[in-house]
Write a protein that binds this DNA or RNA. Sequence first.
DNA 1: GTCGTAAGTAAACAGTCGTGTACATGCCTC
DNA 2: GAGGCATGTACACGACTGTTTACTTACGAC
Lengths: 192, 192
Amino acid sequence: MPRSTEPKKPTRKRDADRTRSAILDAARTLFSTRGYANTGVRDVADLAGVNSALVGRYFGSKEGLYRATLEVIDISPMLRGDRRRFGADMMSIFCDTEGASGPLVMMILSAADPAAHAMSIEFLQAKVMVPLARWLGPPNAEERAARLNILWTGFLTSWKLLPLQPLADARLASTRRWLEAATQAIVDEGTG
Amino acid sequence: MPRSTEPKKPTRKRDADRTRSAILDAARTLFSTRGYANTGVRDVADLAGVNSALVGRYFGSKEGLYRATLEVIDISPMLRGDRRRFGADMMSIFCDTEGASGPLVMMILSAADPAAHAMSIEFLQAKVMVPLARWLGPPNAEERAARLNILWTGFLTSWKLLPLQPLADARLASTRRWLEAATQAIVDEGTG
DNA sequence: GTCGTAAGTAAACAGTCGTGTACATGCCTC
DNA sequence: GAGGCATGTACACGACTGTTTACTTACGAC
């Protein structure tokens, strides 16, 4: 006899999976806007509409919560398109897809905290740079992957994090063309 | 009445200017290493060898201290060399000069804090992008300045902040050549 | 029905934070 | 030498932090 229509009010409906993912979603949102240090577990819990002690229950600690937000990141969708259109694909993913820049911005904003810093580096190396270099292929796969990282880290920092005037208005289009060409050039080095 | 306390330890020699600059130096070091949020006024005072209340006396508040660290930054030395060697000059400044990357890293590491964020943007626009665009000259001065910012922000982030494997070893030399060429190309657009 | 356990709650813990205040004292001026 | 102000010190305040504990309650198994 389910009493689904009974909003007894004080108690939240019990659903561990839903609660866990609500916390995770809230954490991704806050970590990628305020960074690790400026996001409290109570902030996350409030945004998720959840008691703050549940953060500890489901993720062990704030560090565990940050690790969990890293684990859901997956760049493989970016590497599934046509190599000859990689630059354009990256542009549309990062510029036109809401929240696509979140994970990278989160890691940069959280780099000041030692624990988050270590986790971010480990993740970036294993789950981003290695797959990206493997996808790029010879020659100089790792170094070309690093160049791509430089370009996009710089762009997202200058656009989202410390927004520059020229990237906030119409001139963005011109920068986009330059960035797309530079990105594609790095990929195309492998297909000489 | 309890016994009067033991005599105070020998007091620091009185020199307001020296104290102020000691605090400022410590703040620059810590802000550019741990960021604004993860640096406490007590940390700054301890590193400076100074009582923590003096931070408030000399800089009003932590925000005031951060503003003071921004005010001493000056990019004009970077714009005094030969335009045809700008890329190489930037390389040697940022890669071979200890602490040259400090201010930019500090701003990125501190971007999570709202107050520091606002101050950094204001400073970056007025004291970096505007002079840089003026120095670059037509055509598209502001946009080319933004491109340079993207390149160097990305490089310093990938090198100092979230260090990538290829930038930590010998392959750095190859990335340096690429970055130098890309930098010089942006400058040379203005000299048809 | 009842009962054990998972799910959720409230409160408190021990720190740290930025800041303000009350006090001590060295140094300069007279 | 004496006063006074700048300099430096010690400490407390309230607010916030991450985490833990003790407790209540809903839900599924029997």
